[in-house]
Write a protein that binds this DNA or RNA. Structure first.
Lengths: 240, 240
DNA sequence: CGTACATTTGAAAATGGTCAATCACAGTGG
DNA sequence: CCACTGTGATTGACCATTTTCAAATGTACG
Protein backbone atom coordinates (compact mmCIF):
# COMPACT_ATOMS: atom_id res chain seq x y z
CA UNK A 1 0.00 0.00 0.00
CA UNK A 2 1.39 3.38 -0.99
CA UNK A 3 0.34 5.97 1.51
CA UNK A 4 2.93 8.68 1.26
CA UNK A 5 1.70 12.18 0.67
CA UNK A 6 2.47 13.85 -2.60
CA UNK A 7 5.31 15.98 -1.29
CA UNK A 8 7.13 13.25 0.58
CA UNK A 9 9.08 10.26 -0.65
CA UNK A 10 7.60 6.95 0.40
CA UNK A 11 10.53 6.11 2.64
CA UNK A 12 10.65 9.47 4.30
CA UNK A 13 10.48 8.19 7.86
CA UNK A 14 13.04 5.48 7.18
CA UNK A 15 15.54 8.15 6.24
CA UNK A 16 14.72 10.32 9.23
CA UNK A 17 17.72 11.57 11.17
CA UNK A 18 16.07 11.00 14.54
CA UNK A 19 14.32 7.79 13.54
CA UNK A 20 15.86 5.65 16.24
CA UNK A 21 15.64 8.11 19.07
CA UNK A 22 12.15 9.50 18.50
CA UNK A 23 8.88 7.94 19.56
CA UNK A 24 8.41 6.34 16.16
CA UNK A 25 11.48 4.18 16.77
CA UNK A 26 9.52 1.04 17.59
CA UNK A 27 7.17 1.04 14.63
CA UNK A 28 7.46 -1.48 11.83
CA UNK A 29 7.61 -0.35 8.25
CA UNK A 30 3.86 -0.67 7.65
CA UNK A 31 3.08 1.47 10.64
CA UNK A 32 5.76 3.89 9.60
CA UNK A 33 4.17 4.26 6.16
CA UNK A 34 0.87 5.01 7.82
CA UNK A 35 2.43 7.54 10.18
CA UNK A 36 4.20 9.01 7.20
CA UNK A 37 0.85 9.57 5.56
CA UNK A 38 -0.49 11.73 8.33
CA UNK A 39 2.65 13.73 9.06
CA UNK A 40 4.62 16.22 7.12
CA UNK A 41 7.92 18.00 7.43
CA UNK A 42 7.96 21.63 8.25
CA UNK A 43 10.86 24.00 8.27
CA UNK A 44 10.88 26.78 10.86
CA UNK A 45 12.97 29.93 10.72
CA UNK A 46 14.65 31.14 13.84
CA UNK A 47 12.07 33.06 15.86
CA UNK A 48 9.10 31.47 14.11
CA UNK A 49 6.23 30.47 16.36
CA UNK A 50 4.74 27.00 15.93
CA UNK A 51 2.11 27.00 18.66
CA UNK A 52 0.50 29.72 20.73
CA UNK A 53 -0.24 29.36 24.42
CA UNK A 54 -3.92 28.84 25.10
CA UNK A 55 -4.80 28.05 21.52
CA UNK A 56 -6.70 24.96 20.67
CA UNK A 57 -4.12 22.23 20.51
CA UNK A 58 -4.02 21.59 16.78
CA UNK A 59 -0.55 20.21 16.23
CA UNK A 60 1.98 17.88 17.75
CA UNK A 61 5.45 17.31 16.35
CA UNK A 62 8.76 15.55 16.52
CA UNK A 63 11.84 17.71 16.43
CA UNK A 64 14.24 16.64 13.73
CA UNK A 65 16.85 19.32 14.19
CA UNK A 66 17.12 22.69 15.87
CA UNK A 67 16.17 23.92 19.31
CA UNK A 68 12.75 25.22 20.32
CA UNK A 69 11.45 26.75 23.50
CA UNK A 70 8.25 26.15 25.43
CA UNK A 71 7.18 29.28 27.21
CA UNK A 72 4.37 31.02 28.98
CA UNK A 73 3.54 34.62 29.75
CA UNK A 74 3.25 35.82 33.31
CA UNK A 75 0.72 38.29 34.62
CA UNK A 76 3.32 41.05 34.70
CA UNK A 77 4.29 40.46 31.09
CA UNK A 78 7.48 38.58 31.86
CA UNK A 79 8.10 35.38 30.01
CA UNK A 80 9.08 32.13 31.63
CA UNK A 81 10.62 29.42 29.51
CA UNK A 82 9.21 26.10 30.68
CA UNK A 83 11.59 23.96 28.76
CA UNK A 84 13.80 23.56 25.75
CA UNK A 85 13.17 20.97 23.10
CA UNK A 86 15.97 19.30 21.18
CA UNK A 87 16.22 16.90 18.23
CA UNK A 88 14.21 13.68 18.68
CA UNK A 89 12.07 15.27 21.40
CA UNK A 90 8.33 15.18 21.09
CA UNK A 91 6.42 18.42 21.30
CA UNK A 92 2.83 19.44 21.85
CA UNK A 93 -0.07 18.29 23.94
CA UNK A 94 -1.87 15.19 22.69
CA UNK A 95 -5.22 14.28 24.25
CA UNK A 96 -5.89 17.78 25.51
CA UNK A 97 -7.95 20.78 24.52
CA UNK A 98 -5.50 23.61 24.63
CA UNK A 99 -1.80 24.06 24.28
CA UNK A 100 -0.50 24.94 27.73
CA UNK A 101 2.53 26.84 26.37
CA UNK A 102 3.79 28.65 23.32
CA UNK A 103 6.38 27.00 21.10
CA UNK A 104 8.94 29.04 19.21
CA UNK A 105 12.02 28.06 17.25
CA UNK A 106 15.24 29.36 18.80
CA UNK A 107 17.26 28.28 15.81
CA UNK A 108 16.25 27.34 12.30
CA UNK A 109 14.60 24.00 12.80
CA UNK A 110 12.96 21.08 11.07
CA UNK A 111 10.03 19.36 12.65
CA UNK A 112 7.73 16.54 11.67
CA UNK A 113 4.21 17.80 12.39
CA UNK A 114 0.90 15.99 12.77
CA UNK A 115 -2.61 17.33 13.06
CA UNK A 116 -3.43 16.45 16.62
CA UNK A 117 -6.62 14.63 15.81
CA UNK A 118 -4.75 12.42 13.35
CA UNK A 119 -1.99 11.78 15.82
CA UNK A 120 -4.36 11.00 18.68
CA UNK A 121 -6.20 8.47 16.54
CA UNK A 122 -2.99 6.89 15.35
CA UNK A 123 -1.66 6.66 18.89
CA UNK A 124 -4.83 5.01 20.17
CA UNK A 125 -4.63 2.48 17.39
CA UNK A 126 -0.94 1.76 17.89
CA UNK A 127 -0.12 0.93 21.49
CA UNK A 128 3.57 0.60 20.69
CA UNK A 129 3.70 4.26 19.75
CA UNK A 130 1.60 5.22 22.71
CA UNK A 131 3.93 3.25 24.92
CA UNK A 132 6.95 5.09 23.56
CA UNK A 133 5.17 8.36 24.12
CA UNK A 134 4.39 7.36 27.68
CA UNK A 135 8.00 6.47 28.37
CA UNK A 136 9.14 9.75 26.91
CA UNK A 137 6.58 11.72 28.90
CA UNK A 138 7.64 9.99 32.10
CA UNK A 139 11.26 10.88 31.38
CA UNK A 140 10.31 14.43 30.59
CA UNK A 141 8.46 14.63 33.90
CA UNK A 142 11.54 13.40 35.73
CA UNK A 143 13.67 15.93 33.92
CA UNK A 144 11.24 18.74 34.66
CA UNK A 145 11.18 17.85 38.33
CA UNK A 146 14.94 17.96 38.47
CA UNK A 147 14.78 21.37 36.80
CA UNK A 148 12.54 22.50 39.64
CA UNK A 149 15.49 21.98 41.95
CA UNK A 150 17.57 24.29 39.87
CA UNK A 151 14.92 26.98 39.91
CA UNK A 152 14.11 26.81 43.57
CA UNK A 153 17.34 25.99 45.32
CA UNK A 154 20.26 27.10 43.22
CA UNK A 155 21.87 30.52 43.22
CA UNK A 156 22.73 32.39 40.06
CA UNK A 157 26.18 30.85 39.69
CA UNK A 158 24.91 27.31 40.11
CA UNK A 159 22.12 27.93 37.63
CA UNK A 160 24.47 29.28 35.01
CA UNK A 161 27.00 26.50 35.45
CA UNK A 162 24.28 23.87 35.24
CA UNK A 163 22.78 25.52 32.21
CA UNK A 164 26.07 25.70 30.32
CA UNK A 165 26.91 22.08 31.09
CA UNK A 166 23.51 20.86 29.99
CA UNK A 167 23.73 22.89 26.80
CA UNK A 168 27.12 21.45 25.97
CA UNK A 169 25.75 17.94 26.38
CA UNK A 170 22.49 18.43 24.53
CA UNK A 171 24.22 20.18 21.65
CA UNK A 172 26.82 17.46 21.22
CA UNK A 173 26.92 16.71 17.49
CA UNK A 174 25.66 13.13 17.60
CA UNK A 175 22.93 13.72 20.12
CA UNK A 176 24.61 11.38 22.52
CA UNK A 177 23.79 12.42 26.03
CA UNK A 178 26.95 12.14 28.03
CA UNK A 179 29.72 14.36 29.22
CA UNK A 180 32.46 12.46 27.42
CA UNK A 181 31.76 13.79 23.98
CA UNK A 182 29.93 16.93 25.06
CA UNK A 183 30.73 19.95 22.96
CA UNK A 184 33.43 22.19 24.39
CA UNK A 185 32.60 24.94 21.97
CA UNK A 186 29.04 25.57 20.98
CA UNK A 187 26.75 28.21 19.59
CA UNK A 188 24.25 29.48 22.13
CA UNK A 189 20.76 29.24 20.68
CA UNK A 190 19.50 31.77 23.23
CA UNK A 191 19.95 35.46 23.88
CA UNK A 192 20.90 36.67 27.37
CA UNK A 193 17.27 37.56 27.94
CA UNK A 194 16.15 34.06 26.99
CA UNK A 195 18.76 32.47 29.24
CA UNK A 196 17.34 34.60 32.02
CA UNK A 197 13.86 33.39 31.15
CA UNK A 198 15.03 29.78 31.34
CA UNK A 199 16.83 30.17 34.64
CA UNK A 200 14.51 32.59 36.39
CA UNK A 201 17.12 35.35 36.45
CA UNK A 202 17.32 38.85 35.05
CA UNK A 203 19.38 39.65 32.01
CA UNK A 204 21.79 41.66 34.17
CA UNK A 205 22.46 38.75 36.48
CA UNK A 206 23.03 36.43 33.53
CA UNK A 207 25.48 38.88 32.06
CA UNK A 208 27.34 39.31 35.34
CA UNK A 209 27.67 35.57 35.73
CA UNK A 210 29.04 35.22 32.21
CA UNK A 211 31.60 37.89 32.98
CA UNK A 212 32.51 36.25 36.26
CA UNK A 213 32.93 32.74 34.83
CA UNK A 214 34.97 34.16 31.98
CA UNK A 215 37.24 36.23 34.22
CA UNK A 216 37.83 33.17 36.36
CA UNK A 217 38.91 31.26 33.28
CA UNK A 218 36.22 28.57 33.41
CA UNK A 219 34.67 29.55 30.10
CA UNK A 220 35.57 31.56 27.07
CA UNK A 221 33.26 33.83 25.12
CA UNK A 222 34.63 34.18 21.59
CA UNK A 223 31.46 36.05 20.69
CA UNK A 224 28.12 36.79 22.30
CA UNK A 225 26.58 33.68 20.88
CA UNK A 226 29.49 31.31 21.38
CA UNK A 227 30.71 29.59 24.51
CA UNK A 228 33.89 27.64 25.13
CA UNK A 229 34.08 25.41 28.14
CA UNK A 230 37.68 25.69 29.32
CA UNK A 231 37.52 24.03 32.73
CA UNK A 232 34.72 21.52 32.67
CA UNK A 233 35.38 19.96 36.05
CA UNK A 234 35.65 23.36 37.72
CA UNK A 235 32.36 24.29 36.10
CA UNK A 236 30.84 21.07 37.40
CA UNK A 237 31.93 22.06 40.89
CA UNK A 238 30.15 25.38 40.52
CA UNK A 239 26.99 23.58 39.47
CA UNK A 240 27.06 21.60 42.76
CA UNK B 1 -12.82 -16.44 36.91
CA UNK B 2 -12.01 -15.66 40.48
CA UNK B 3 -8.67 -13.96 40.72
CA UNK B 4 -8.81 -11.96 43.89
CA UNK B 5 -6.04 -12.51 46.38
CA UNK B 6 -6.81 -14.15 49.63
CA UNK B 7 -6.85 -11.03 51.73
CA UNK B 8 -9.07 -8.99 49.46
CA UNK B 9 -12.73 -9.27 48.66
CA UNK B 10 -13.41 -10.10 45.04
CA UNK B 11 -15.01 -6.77 44.35
CA UNK B 12 -12.33 -4.78 46.02
CA UNK B 13 -11.63 -2.46 43.09
CA UNK B 14 -15.31 -1.94 42.42
CA UNK B 15 -15.73 -0.53 45.88
CA UNK B 16 -12.65 1.68 45.62
CA UNK B 17 -13.16 5.27 46.71
CA UNK B 18 -11.11 6.65 43.85
CA UNK B 19 -12.28 4.14 41.28
CA UNK B 20 -13.63 6.71 38.84
CA UNK B 21 -10.87 9.20 39.13
CA UNK B 22 -7.86 6.92 39.10
CA UNK B 23 -6.19 5.36 36.09
CA UNK B 24 -8.17 2.17 36.50
CA UNK B 25 -11.36 4.09 35.73
CA UNK B 26 -11.70 2.84 32.17
CA UNK B 27 -11.24 -0.86 32.83
CA UNK B 28 -14.09 -3.31 32.52
CA UNK B 29 -14.87 -5.69 35.32
CA UNK B 30 -12.76 -8.55 33.93
CA UNK B 31 -9.74 -6.31 33.66
CA UNK B 32 -10.46 -4.96 37.09
CA UNK B 33 -10.46 -8.45 38.55
CA UNK B 34 -7.11 -9.09 36.95
CA UNK B 35 -5.68 -5.83 38.23
CA UNK B 36 -7.11 -6.66 41.61
CA UNK B 37 -5.16 -9.88 41.57
CA UNK B 38 -1.79 -8.16 41.20
CA UNK B 39 -2.40 -5.24 43.54
CA UNK B 40 -2.93 -4.99 47.24
CA UNK B 41 -3.92 -2.34 49.70
CA UNK B 42 -1.37 -0.95 52.01
CA UNK B 43 -1.85 1.37 54.92
CA UNK B 44 0.86 3.91 55.65
CA UNK B 45 1.36 5.76 58.89
CA UNK B 46 2.19 9.42 58.83
CA UNK B 47 5.91 9.73 58.18
CA UNK B 48 6.25 6.24 56.77
CA UNK B 49 8.46 5.94 53.70
CA UNK B 50 7.13 3.98 50.73
CA UNK B 51 9.98 4.43 48.27
CA UNK B 52 13.56 5.59 48.60
CA UNK B 53 15.26 7.84 46.10
CA UNK B 54 17.70 5.96 43.90
CA UNK B 55 16.42 2.52 44.84
CA UNK B 56 15.46 0.05 42.24
CA UNK B 57 11.93 0.98 41.27
CA UNK B 58 10.04 -1.92 42.78
CA UNK B 59 6.60 -0.47 43.39
CA UNK B 60 4.01 1.76 41.84
CA UNK B 61 0.76 2.73 43.49
CA UNK B 62 -2.53 4.55 43.38
CA UNK B 63 -3.30 6.86 46.25
CA UNK B 64 -6.65 6.07 47.84
CA UNK B 65 -6.56 8.58 50.61
CA UNK B 66 -4.00 10.72 52.36
CA UNK B 67 -1.27 12.99 51.09
CA UNK B 68 2.26 11.91 50.20
CA UNK B 69 5.34 13.82 49.17
CA UNK B 70 7.87 13.18 46.45
CA UNK B 71 11.24 14.53 47.44
CA UNK B 72 14.90 14.49 46.72
CA UNK B 73 18.01 15.30 48.70
CA UNK B 74 20.32 18.09 47.62
CA UNK B 75 24.08 18.02 47.80
CA UNK B 76 24.06 20.29 50.85
CA UNK B 77 21.66 18.00 52.69
CA UNK B 78 18.61 20.16 52.12
CA UNK B 79 15.49 18.49 50.93
CA UNK B 80 13.43 19.64 48.00
CA UNK B 81 9.88 18.43 47.68
CA UNK B 82 9.22 17.73 44.02
CA UNK B 83 5.52 17.33 44.33
CA UNK B 84 2.61 16.32 46.50
CA UNK B 85 0.40 13.38 45.70
CA UNK B 86 -3.29 13.32 46.57
CA UNK B 87 -6.09 10.74 46.42
CA UNK B 88 -6.57 9.18 42.96
CA UNK B 89 -3.07 10.23 41.89
CA UNK B 90 -0.69 7.68 40.52
CA UNK B 91 2.69 7.30 42.10
CA UNK B 92 5.98 5.72 41.17
CA UNK B 93 8.03 5.28 38.07
CA UNK B 94 6.84 2.57 35.71
CA UNK B 95 9.17 1.47 32.90
CA UNK B 96 12.29 2.75 34.59
CA UNK B 97 15.18 1.33 36.54
CA UNK B 98 15.32 3.53 39.58
CA UNK B 99 12.94 5.65 41.55
CA UNK B 100 13.96 9.24 40.90
CA UNK B 101 12.56 10.50 44.23
CA UNK B 102 11.66 9.35 47.69
CA UNK B 103 8.01 8.91 48.64
CA UNK B 104 6.81 9.50 52.18
CA UNK B 105 3.35 9.72 53.69
CA UNK B 106 2.58 13.16 55.11
CA UNK B 107 -0.63 11.91 56.67
CA UNK B 108 -1.87 8.45 57.41
CA UNK B 109 -2.64 7.10 53.99
CA UNK B 110 -4.02 4.17 52.07
CA UNK B 111 -2.50 3.20 48.79
CA UNK B 112 -3.07 0.45 46.28
CA UNK B 113 0.37 -0.93 45.47
CA UNK B 114 1.64 -3.07 42.62
CA UNK B 115 4.96 -4.73 42.09
CA UNK B 116 6.36 -2.76 39.26
CA UNK B 117 7.07 -5.71 37.05
CA UNK B 118 3.45 -6.87 37.41
CA UNK B 119 2.13 -3.42 36.71
CA UNK B 120 4.37 -2.89 33.68
CA UNK B 121 3.21 -6.16 32.19
CA UNK B 122 -0.42 -5.42 32.88
CA UNK B 123 -0.09 -1.95 31.35
CA UNK B 124 1.54 -3.29 28.21
CA UNK B 125 -1.27 -5.80 27.84
CA UNK B 126 -4.03 -3.28 28.47
CA UNK B 127 -3.70 -0.24 26.26
CA UNK B 128 -6.72 1.40 27.88
CA UNK B 129 -4.90 1.52 31.18
CA UNK B 130 -1.74 2.67 29.52
CA UNK B 131 -3.67 5.38 27.78
CA UNK B 132 -5.10 6.61 31.06
CA UNK B 133 -1.66 6.62 32.55
CA UNK B 134 -0.37 8.61 29.60
CA UNK B 135 -3.11 11.21 29.98
CA UNK B 136 -2.41 11.48 33.65
CA UNK B 137 1.32 11.80 33.10
CA UNK B 138 0.76 14.52 30.51
CA UNK B 139 -1.42 16.42 32.98
CA UNK B 140 1.13 15.97 35.69
CA UNK B 141 3.79 17.36 33.38
CA UNK B 142 1.64 20.42 32.69
CA UNK B 143 1.05 20.89 36.37
CA UNK B 144 4.76 20.53 37.17
CA UNK B 145 5.65 23.07 34.51
CA UNK B 146 3.21 25.56 35.99
CA UNK B 147 4.80 24.93 39.38
CA UNK B 148 8.14 25.90 37.87
CA UNK B 149 6.70 29.36 37.38
CA UNK B 150 5.90 29.59 41.03
CA UNK B 151 9.37 28.53 42.02
CA UNK B 152 11.24 30.77 39.67
CA UNK B 153 9.21 33.92 39.40
CA UNK B 154 7.07 34.38 42.48
CA UNK B 155 8.07 36.08 45.69
CA UNK B 156 7.43 34.59 49.10
CA UNK B 157 3.97 36.10 49.50
CA UNK B 158 2.80 34.90 46.10
CA UNK B 159 4.15 31.44 46.76
CA UNK B 160 2.40 31.15 50.09
CA UNK B 161 -0.91 32.45 48.76
CA UNK B 162 -0.76 30.08 45.81
CA UNK B 163 0.16 27.18 48.05
CA UNK B 164 -2.70 27.79 50.48
CA UNK B 165 -5.25 28.15 47.70
CA UNK B 166 -4.09 24.97 46.00
CA UNK B 167 -4.18 23.09 49.29
CA UNK B 168 -7.72 24.23 50.00
CA UNK B 169 -8.81 22.97 46.59
CA UNK B 170 -6.96 19.68 46.66
CA UNK B 171 -8.16 18.90 50.16
CA UNK B 172 -11.81 19.59 49.37
CA UNK B 173 -13.74 16.66 50.82
CA UNK B 174 -15.11 15.23 47.59
CA UNK B 175 -11.94 15.58 45.61
CA UNK B 176 -13.63 17.97 43.24
CA UNK B 177 -11.06 20.34 41.85
CA UNK B 178 -12.60 23.76 41.83
CA UNK B 179 -12.69 26.83 43.99
CA UNK B 180 -16.44 26.74 44.57
CA UNK B 181 -16.40 23.95 47.09
CA UNK B 182 -12.81 24.31 48.17
CA UNK B 183 -12.27 23.84 51.85
CA UNK B 184 -12.17 27.04 53.87
CA UNK B 185 -10.82 25.25 56.87
CA UNK B 186 -8.34 22.48 56.47
CA UNK B 187 -5.65 20.57 58.28
CA UNK B 188 -2.20 21.24 56.92
CA UNK B 189 -0.48 17.96 56.14
CA UNK B 190 2.93 19.67 56.22
CA UNK B 191 5.18 21.22 58.81
CA UNK B 192 6.58 24.71 58.27
CA UNK B 193 9.83 23.12 57.19
CA UNK B 194 8.06 20.96 54.63
CA UNK B 195 6.14 23.93 53.28
CA UNK B 196 9.48 25.64 52.85
CA UNK B 197 10.77 22.56 51.03
CA UNK B 198 7.80 22.67 48.68
CA UNK B 199 8.05 26.37 47.93
CA UNK B 200 11.79 26.78 47.91
CA UNK B 201 11.80 29.04 50.97
CA UNK B 202 13.34 28.86 54.40
CA UNK B 203 11.26 27.95 57.39
CA UNK B 204 11.65 31.47 58.75
CA UNK B 205 10.26 33.05 55.62
CA UNK B 206 7.31 30.67 55.67
CA UNK B 207 6.61 31.55 59.26
CA UNK B 208 6.84 35.27 58.61
CA UNK B 209 4.42 35.00 55.71
CA UNK B 210 1.94 33.07 57.84
CA UNK B 211 2.15 35.76 60.48
CA UNK B 212 1.72 38.48 57.88
CA UNK B 213 -1.29 36.92 56.16
CA UNK B 214 -2.87 36.29 59.52
CA UNK B 215 -2.30 39.80 60.83
CA UNK B 216 -3.82 41.17 57.64
CA UNK B 217 -6.91 39.07 58.22
CA UNK B 218 -6.67 36.96 55.07
CA UNK B 219 -6.27 33.71 56.91
CA UNK B 220 -6.76 32.35 60.38
CA UNK B 221 -4.51 29.93 62.19
CA UNK B 222 -6.55 28.14 64.85
CA UNK B 223 -3.55 25.90 65.47
CA UNK B 224 -0.19 25.26 63.84
CA UNK B 225 -1.62 22.58 61.66
CA UNK B 226 -4.90 24.22 60.75
CA UNK B 227 -5.64 27.00 58.30
CA UNK B 228 -8.81 29.00 57.76
CA UNK B 229 -9.17 30.96 54.59
CA UNK B 230 -11.02 34.12 55.61
CA UNK B 231 -10.68 36.29 52.52
CA UNK B 232 -10.33 34.01 49.54
CA UNK B 233 -10.49 36.66 46.85
CA UNK B 234 -7.93 38.81 48.64
CA UNK B 235 -5.71 35.77 48.88
CA UNK B 236 -6.18 35.15 45.19
CA UNK B 237 -4.99 38.68 44.53
CA UNK B 238 -1.84 38.02 46.49
CA UNK B 239 -1.21 34.90 44.43
CA UNK B 240 -1.21 37.07 41.26
C1' DC C 1 6.42 19.27 85.37
C1' DG C 2 10.15 19.06 82.38
C1' DT C 3 12.28 18.11 78.18
C1' DA C 4 12.51 18.10 73.20
C1' DC C 5 11.16 19.96 69.21
C1' DA C 6 8.73 23.13 66.19
C1' DT C 7 7.75 27.71 65.51
C1' DT C 8 8.20 32.55 65.92
C1' DT C 9 10.72 36.75 66.18
C1' DG C 10 14.71 39.85 65.66
C1' DA C 11 18.88 41.78 63.61
C1' DA C 12 22.52 41.48 60.27
C1' DA C 13 24.25 39.97 55.89
C1' DA C 14 24.01 38.41 51.27
C1' DT C 15 21.97 37.84 47.03
C1' DG C 16 19.75 39.26 43.18
C1' DG C 17 16.67 42.85 41.23
C1' DT C 18 15.96 47.60 39.50
C1' DC C 19 17.23 51.64 37.25
C1' DA C 20 20.37 54.07 34.50
C1' DA C 21 24.36 54.75 31.77
C1' DT C 22 27.65 52.96 28.64
C1' DC C 23 29.55 49.77 25.36
C1' DA C 24 29.79 46.67 21.20
C1' DC C 25 28.48 45.37 17.01
C1' DA C 26 25.74 44.47 12.85
C1' DG C 27 23.33 46.58 9.35
C1' DT C 28 22.30 50.88 6.70
C1' DG C 29 22.88 54.55 3.92
C1' DG C 30 25.57 58.56 2.63
C1' DC D 1 34.76 53.35 3.26
C1' DC D 2 32.98 55.26 7.19
C1' DA D 3 29.79 57.51 10.24
C1' DC D 4 25.13 56.58 12.04
C1' DT D 5 21.69 54.05 14.29
C1' DG D 6 19.36 50.49 16.76
C1' DT D 7 19.56 46.49 19.38
C1' DG D 8 21.55 43.57 22.66
C1' DA D 9 24.97 43.23 26.22
C1' DT D 10 27.65 44.94 29.95
C1' DT D 11 28.63 47.56 33.97
C1' DG D 12 27.73 50.37 38.12
C1' DA D 13 25.14 52.12 42.10
C1' DC D 14 21.53 51.44 44.90
C1' DC D 15 17.67 48.97 46.90
C1' DA D 16 14.37 45.14 48.27
C1' DT D 17 13.80 40.68 49.57
C1' DT D 18 15.19 36.67 51.49
C1' DT D 19 18.57 34.09 53.97
C1' DT D 20 21.37 33.39 57.86
C1' DC D 21 22.37 33.30 62.53
C1' DA D 22 20.71 33.72 67.07
C1' DA D 23 17.48 33.81 70.67
C1' DA D 24 12.99 33.41 72.64
C1' DT D 25 8.58 31.32 72.80
C1' DG D 26 5.18 27.80 72.36
C1' DT D 27 3.41 23.15 72.40
C1' DA D 28 3.19 18.22 72.78
C1' DC D 29 4.25 14.33 75.17
C1' DG D 30 6.43 11.40 78.39
Amino acid sequence: MELSTSDLPANFCQACAVRNRAICGDLDSNELDLLNSIGRRRRLEQGEQLLWEGDEAVLVANVIDGVLKLSTQLADGKEQILGLVYPSDFLGRPFGDTTPYGVEALTDANVCVFRRADFDRFARDHPRLEHKLLERTLSELDRTRRWMLLLSRMNAEQKMATFLLEMSERLAPDGCLNAVNAASVFALPLSRQQIGDVLGLTIETVSRQFTKLKSEGLIGLPSRREVTILERSALENRAV
